[in-house]
Design a protein around this nucleic acid. Structure first.
Lengths: 189, 189
DNA sequence: ACCGTAGTACTGCAGTTGCAGTAGTGTCAA
DNA sequence: TTGACACTACTGCAACTGCAGTACTACGGT
């Protein structure tokens, strides 16, 4: 098992691109080699099997989708308000749109997790924890809304993001900025 | 190309099961034969290629997830109210839970559609139309809320459903009935 | 009633692809 | 010089597709 972390990350990023572009069906060790531009067989040296690969892809995807702490701190300089909450949601949507591959990969992993116990355990732990943290953060930052409202806000955002990524035609009749503003105002009393 | 409609439907239902259980990766014509318990090669006679198969799987999945008109009519006997809207949402969630395979297949198809232009066109048309219809239905039935509110309600429900299907651990801290009641009350003024 | 034909369903095979895994060699840096 | 990584090449295997050939069924003509 090779250790070179830079190369490993490069392989994982390549895997995310393959996953987004060709789906779980196209994700093979060989395809990763090709995408990363490394010799055939290299990915085999870094991942013992598909399970291990997927677990590591998940961790890498999580890293990529985590907001930049500095940018977040910058935004949070404003006084907490509905406007700030809406701004955070707009940034969330933008972040997701800017890493389309990462997001599609995460969706693929969710589906894959319904079939692989290990991945499911890891993904459940991670996403449940993240949800908890994000709600706590919102509340302790003094942003408006109660626990249920914040949870609903994130479910609505998630639905919107999935549609935006996969079938944006559904969103065409609406303005996403307007949707976000309305959902913040209505869900966070 | 064979025509026997009953057999075709049986093959498509088998395809949906395979898709849900093993993902796009495991969906082959042979796997469908096996799942449907028909002789090897049969599915090849019904679907010229993978594209055609996926398109037809999509149509069949749509059929399966459409609410039963009678049951809907029965529910709609009540006077329109927030309570009725909540009841409709609870039924939606139940319906989705009762056809887990159909739902997972639809998610797979959404992802597949990001890679196949034909499928994307068809899926976009269908889902956009469905969204429009569902919002119109809600409004003309006299249920509370404006167009934006109803749209938000469906995004939130969609997010909740996807989480429920793939990573239910996220929902564990919450009561789905409570979430539904709150989202109806808050999003539909 | 019989036969021929067309349409449909089934079976098995052959060829192809493409993957995983691993062994072996080359290279570079400590 | 030694150890870790990079690269190359090979083997064996599994699965898929597409084809070709066969069996069954229905139907229409005589």
């Amino acid at each position: 098992m090779r250790q070179n972390p830079a190369r490993r990350t490069a392989l994982l990023d390549a895997a995310i691109d393959v996953l987004a572009r060709e789906g779980s069906r196209g994700l093979t060790l060989r395809a990763i080699d090709k995408e990363a531009g490394v010799p055939t067989g290299t990915a085999s040296n870094y991942f013992a099997n598909r399970d291990e690969l997927l677990t590591q892809v998940m961790r890498r995807t999580r890293e990529r989708l985590t907001p930049d702490p500095e940018a977040l701190a910058e935004t949070m300089k404003q006084a907490p308000s509905h406007e700030l909450a809406a701004e955070l949601m707009r940034q969330l949507l933008t972040r997701m749109r800017n890493d389309r591959a990462g997001n599609l990969a995460m969706l693929e992993l969710r589906l894959e997790a319904t079939r692989r116990a290990d991945l499911h355990t890891e993904l459940s732990g991670f996403l449940a924890e993240e949800n908890r943290q994000v709600v706590d953060y919102h509340l302790t930052a003094g942003l408006p809304g109660d626990r249920t409202g914040v949870a609903l806000l994130y479910f609505a955002m998630f639905g919107l993001i999935v549609d935006d990524l996969t079938v944006p035609a559904i969103l065409e009749p609406y303005s996403t900025d307007d949707l976000i503003e309305q959902m913040v105002n209505r869900l966070l009393p």
